[in-house]
């Protein structure tokens, strides 16, 4: 049956509308769970608030378990899902740069837009920074090109590269997630509680 759009159950023309609806819901939930606060986001790095980690870990778990169940029951074809291509060094360097930006700015690109929507000035500055970054990158694209599109590994997943059954992988991943939750809870309890306004 699924995925709905590639199998033409929902036509391609709808994809933008669906994308907008999902985007609205995503933005709403980010804001509603307090992700537009840079303190909360940066809390992961300082060890007083791990909501970001928990939310994203849980979201990944829910979706991966859901997808695997749907795949198992034949509602969804696992193999026709889009897998983001891996450009190894591009991803590593980009990830590091984004991490630095995350700690210092207190937002990640998605949440910064959320925060702009509720009128936070620091977020607007942050988005300005993103735009400047994009501009510099686009101007120097010929210089970055070898890293940007080099080290191409294709559309690999962790399961492919580790060569284990996806089911075991998810099980291990769940255990890791739960252990991570417990550990970060212990770390959080050692720190002072911080209240946001």
């Amino acid at each position: 049956m699924g995925p709905l759009i590639p199998n033409d159950i929902i036509s391609h023309e709808w994809s933008y509308i669906i994308a907008i609806l999902i985007g609205l819901a995503f933005g709403y939930i980010l804001e509603a769970s307090g992700f537009s606060s840079s303190r909360k986001l940066a809390g992961v790095f300082y060890g007083y608030d791990f909501v970001v980690l928990k939310v994203f870990f849980t979201a990944a778990l829910v979706s991966v378990i859901g997808i695997l169940y749907m795949d198992y029951l034949g509602y969804l074809d696992f193999n026709s899902l889009y897998v983001h291509p891996t450009f190894l060094w591009g991803a590593i360097i980009g990830g590091a740069i984004m991490g630095i930006g995350f700690v210092s700015g207190g937002f990640c690109p998605g949440t910064s837009l959320c925060a702009v929507a509720i009128g936070k000035i620091d977020a607007m500055v942050f988005v300005g920074g993103i735009l400047i970054g994009i501009f510099i990158f686009s101007e120097l694209i010929s210089f970055f090109e070898p890293i940007y599109s080099g080290y191409y590994f294709g559309n690999v997943t962790l399961v492919d590269s580790l060569g284990i059954s996806p089911y075991w992988f998810v099980f291990i991943f769940t255990i890791i997630a739960i252990i991570a939750f417990i550990v970060v809870d212990i770390i959080r309890k050692r720190n002072k509680k911080i209240f946001y306004n």
Binding site: H84, P85, F87, M98, C108, P109, G110, T111
Partner: peptide, 8 residues
């Protein structure tokens, strides 16, 4: 080749 989309 799809444009690489940024994460959040």
């Amino acid at each position: 080749k799809m444009p690489v989309e940024g994460g959040c």
